[in-house]
Amino acid sequence: MNTEGILGRVMLIDDERFDRMMYQRIIGRSKLAQDIVEFSYAEDALAYLADPAQPQVDLILLDINMPRMSGFEFLEAADAQLGVEFRAAVVIMLTTSLSPDDQDRAAGYPAVRGYFNKPLEQLYLDQAVEICASARGTAP
């Protein structure tokens, strides 16, 4: 089955430059994404999503601990600003936080479909494909 570009446009939100670099490399190698946009501040990512001139994003990989606006604050703000449109989006948390509290809290947001612990591995990307497919209601 041809999975090339199946994830569509992927958004990376992570304050760690090196982590973003590694995600780019791994996702690039897998050829699962059509396009990747990355942000070091969640505020900038939110502005991007709210801008109608920008193309639609299919998958968001979101860190939790970030300066200024944390991953959870981003989820709140996006929910409030973008509403239904955002609730239908596919967000996967990608974080070093091992806290079960964070995991429970993330599960409370309708847009959040998965919770991965860093570092990102090929295995997670396969799961991400499945998650995206079930969220869209189509088999991969």
Binding site: D15, E16, R17, S40, Y41, N65, P67, R68
Partner: peptide
């Protein structure tokens, strides 16, 4: 604790 306002770069 561990809170930052800027990215490390």
């Amino acid at each position: 604790l561990f809170h930052r306002l800027h990215v490390r770069e």
